[in-house]
């Protein structure tokens, strides 16, 4: 079976998704959403938007339950960290491989 990937999102799609995201709640000073009772429902709507199709009722209920857990996790993560704390990964640029022929040509 061929995998069906939903169409690419446009800027307008992203704008719509941001509006839905805003319905999750107001932003706290640390940048964390304060969840409203409707938050799992709104987040499920974002997922459906990303999928490009609605979920069936049963799956939607499971997803909403999972999202409730996710929101609870966010609350636990909501600790202040010093500005400038870098995340635990480092990007390393890949050095260019310049061929000898090209160098000689200059």
């Amino acid at each position: 079976m061929q995998d069906q990937v939903p169409r690419k999102m446009t800027r307008r799609d992203l704008g719509k998704a941001a509006l839905v995201a805003a319905s999750l709640g107001t932003l706290a000073p640390t940048g964390h959403a304060i969840p409203s009772p409707d938050a799992p429902n709104a987040a499920a709507a974002i997922i459906e938007h990303l999928l490009g199709k609605p979920m069936d009722e049963e799956l939607r209920a499971y997803v909403q339950a999972a999202l409730k857990d996710t929101l609870a996790t966010w609350n636990k993560l909501n600790i202040a960290i010093p500005d400038g704390t870098e995340p635990a990964f480092v990007f390393q640029p890949v050095p260019a491989r310049i061929s000898k022929e090209r160098t000689r040509g200059r």
Partner: peptide
């Protein structure tokens, strides 16, 4: 599916906590 709805900033917050 729920993983799709976690904002990037939340992931980075977790990675910054990890570094700390």
């Amino acid at each position: 599916l729920a993983g799709l709805a976690i904002p990037g900033v939340e992931y980075l917050h977790a990675m910054r906590i990890r570094a700390l």
